[in-house]
Amino acid sequence: MKIYSDIQKVVLDVNNEKRELVIEPSDTLLRVLRDKLELKGTKIGCEHGDCGVCTVQINGKAVKSCLSLAIENIESKITTIEGIDNEPLKKSFVKHQGFQCGYCTSGMIVNADSLLKSIDKPSDAETRVYLESNLCRCTGYEGIESAVKNTVKL
């Protein structure tokens, strides 16, 4: 049984890099990524799992980092927006105006990338099921959906 009490030196696999850092067991993954690893692309939003701006991938699956402890991801592969190398998806967001203020964009792209990794040619319904996890307060949903769908077609 592994026991972690008090401050711990741990290694996290973030964006294919082994990052050594010191954390408390109660640190959320979101705060560790932003405050200790300076990966500011993962945004802070509601911190209640509602908005999706803090979405990262854990072993390829989209997860809200505000609802994850950093310590429970020691043996996982963590991918943040900085580690997403899906250029067609990013270009499609630009081409189809998949953002307005841009605050939700990193979460949207991380989530959409997990969709495209999980399902070869997602249907419109499957795309919607994934994208419903993220809020865009500018309500630019059509552009976002169109960006993801047109990446699928590439």
């Binding site: 049984m1 592994k2 026991i3 972690y4 009490s5 008090d6 408390e24 067991p25 109660s26 640190d27 959320t28 705060r31 911190e47 402890l69 310590i71 429970e72």
Partner: peptide, 17 residues
């Protein structure tokens, strides 16, 4: 952010948990 500290254990079996 969680405003207090706790310890964290990862048991391998039901008995350990």
């Amino acid at each position: 952010m969680i405003p207090f500290k706790f310890s964290y254990v990862v048991p391998d079996t039901i008995e350990e948990a």
